[in-house]
Design a protein around this nucleic acid. Structure first.
Lengths: 154, 154
DNA sequence: CGGGATATTGAAAATGATTATCACTTCCGA
DNA sequence: TCGGAAGTGATAATCATTTTCAATATCCCG
């Protein structure tokens, strides 16, 4: 199996003006807010109407590689969400209403770092996502009983 | 803003045979392996040729809701990956080669549970993903220097 | 065993986010 | 200033996932 050639990223030294603009737009989001690429495009285009859609993706890509922006894939959400990278918090996603809530929670970064480092790897980002049900949804609909894992091996 | 009506999931009590079959296929994967829906479809169809693609998605959906299967979105991967739900391990994704490695790492479930419970929510699933570079990729290409977060507020 | 509501099914089409392509411009180092 | 590498926007292409729909299957409650 040949994997895609992603070795030697070797990012250019300077951030192109458009990428900086996209970064600004992302940072302008209130902390705890997350936006799909389309929203970012809209807002960026408002600032510089000549912007093309592709540039947004290219910029977000780069910003993620640089660790400035975090790409967030949430279940039931067809589009990726982006936010300014900000370590030390997790995301709580309510399975019922889909609302996303920031959780100021200490990710066990030490444990992970040492584990990965023990294998000669480097940790660049830790993403912690919690699925569950928020208060209001829990009140609205009680938990359906979980099925006991039905076994039926071939 | 109106959110999609996802309240009251109220899952049917019994697991349809096709869903069970999909579950079996997912469980047949070696632990630590993750498969996109397409693969699962192929393998399931081999067992029951009449299966339609949509059924796979429906089944995976349901199985995820039931907590039997875990849906995994990894960066740079356009398709979701699925694996048997198995709490207490994280995924390490190498940004360079894209390889996925299982990390038997203790997720801080207690801390998260108490935090979320403190807000009257319920935790159903915790997904911990670590991005970084694995040994071989680190040797192949040294870390590009990180840009200092370039500021330029409007 | 009916009988009707409900859930599941597969095929095919629709959707929609993301990527690739391409011709052109811009930037930077030498 | 030259040359190549990187960035650009428009457009088309890709491709995973959803939706639709008509046809079955399944379940519940007598």
């Amino acid at each position: 199996m040949t994997l895609p050639d992603r070795s030697t990223p070797d990012l250019p030294k300077r951030l192109p003006a458009n990428y900086q603009l996209v970064y600004d737009v992302v940072r302008a989001q209130a902390p705890g807010l997350h936006a799909p690429a389309g929203d970012i495009f809209t807002r960026a285009k408002a600032l510089k109407p000549s912007l093309g859609y592709s540039t947004i993706y290219r910029a977000l890509d780069r910003l993620c590689q640089m660790g400035l922006v975090l790409e967030l894939h949430l279940p039931g959400m067809n589009a990726a969400l982006y936010e300014q990278a900000r370590p030390g918090h997790a995301h709580f996603v309510c399975r019922a209403c889909g609302r996303i809530e920031d959780v100021d929670c200490d990710v066990p970064s030490d444990a992970i770092h040492s584990f990965v480092r023990g294998r000669d790897g480097v940790v660049e980002e830790i993403i912690l996502t919690v699925h569950g049900r928020c208060t209001s949804c829990r009140l609205a609909a009680p938990e359906p009983a979980a099925l006991p894992a039905a076994d039926s091996p071939s």
